[in-house]
Write a protein that binds this DNA or RNA. Structure first.
Lengths: 205, 205
DNA sequence: TCTATTTTGTACCGATTGGTATTATATTTA
DNA sequence: TAAATATAATACCAATCGGTACAAAATAGA
């Protein structure tokens, strides 16, 4: 019943911080992908040995899923906060600029682990692959819902196909992740974001 | 000196067609990525055994590189032919529509092996990863060169930043590959292409 | 101090990884 | 028919894969 990530009061105390170890695991999965990451890679980066990893996080699959949960809740995450902007244009602008700044940030691996963590992969990775597809589609759904709200608020024209627009925005963000992997800078990605923004419908009167 | 893929006149004749085997290998790499593909996957799909694979194609790396060469020269490849269109608008339109039709085509794996074959990967795959990055950048360069020509021909305004525009088009195409992996249909991708096209600069007078 | 409890480190598990040595087989040339 | 040549199939290699059994070590409570 108790959370496996919560240290017990009795018994030998845990010698590592699960939160820190999880961030280290995320860094490896982000850079190498699920298939490209071995348990040896993980234990070395996390500074723990395999039995500690398994008793604390389950197995490789579960560790990956917990790591991407950390990814989505990072303080520098840009996706969720962008949806809170007051207008559709501001939402999309903040989202694309956020992707441009974040994906090319050299303080962590380039791109986005949700997009590139298990794209083309082995059958072993199919569980996490499906999980990542679901997350991407959920993200797109949230954009679509936000655009529909903007449409109801008269923020974008009633004639706009919000499903197609949300998919387009998702496409650009996903492409920007590849670009970041190609070595594109934040400045270059911001230029891409500006061009992408020019496809937005005019502000409804 | 002789091409390893060319059967010799003397000795036991080869029992398989290297071209067909290469297409089978491509199919596997395309679907599973470099890291996710094992030699067992390859030999099973290609219908040959490991010594035949190694004597004919070198090793896993070289087989992958030969497979993506096949990919780029397929009859249904859309990238190169699109560049031959007479105007910049037609070039970009044919390219984006081609990606929409091709990436979601169910007669082969979804997306693009150049984009997703070795994105986040192990150190073992770093050679092919770098090769794929180079191919993507080369593709973008070809688009940039074509747009610069169009600009010289008065096809798009002199004020247009062709570097940024080429990068934007590359970004959309790369994003469409992810979308196809998400399960997007050709129709949905065509809607994305139409929105992307609206970012094109007006035709210069 | 003794016991119960939990985590640690090491050593190990069978299966699979990419790659190869070796032998049998099928062909052309002499 | 005999030799030369090249491919096929099998069996094998060390290394690594994800995962675990087990015993030593470190704590809390009695």
């Amino acid at each position: 019943m108790s959370d496996s990530r919560c240290a017990a009061s009795v018994g030998r105390p845990r010698a590592f911080d699960p939160e820190v170890a999880l961030e280290k695991a995320l860094e490896v999965f982000w850079r190498k992908g699920y298939d490209g990451t071995s348990l040896a890679d993980l234990t070395e980066a996390m500074g723990i040995n395999k039995p500690s990893l398994y008793s604390t996080f389950g197995n490789k699959d579960q560790l990956f899923l917990k790591a991407i949960e950390v990814y989505e809740n990072r303080p520098c995450a840009f996706f969720g906060p962008a949806l809170d902007e007051p207008t559709a244009h501001q939402v999309v602008k903040k989202m694309l600029y956020g992707a441009a700044a974040n994906f090319a940030d050299k303080s962590h691996p380039q791109g986005c682990v949700i997009i590139q963590g298990a794209l083309s992969c082995s059958e072993t990775a199919s569980t996490v692959k499906e999980a990542l597809i679901a997350r991407r589609q959920e993200g797109e759904q949230r954009v679509r819902d936000r655009l529909a709200r903007a449409q109801a608020e008269g923020d974008i024209p009633a004639t706009t196909n919000v499903g197609a627009l949300a998919r387009y925005i998702g496409t650009v963000i996903q492409g920007m992740a590849i670009q970041a992997n190609n070595g594109a800078t934040s400045e270059e990605l911001t230029e891409v974001a500006d061009l992408a923004l020019s496809a937005m419908p005019p502000i409804a009167q």
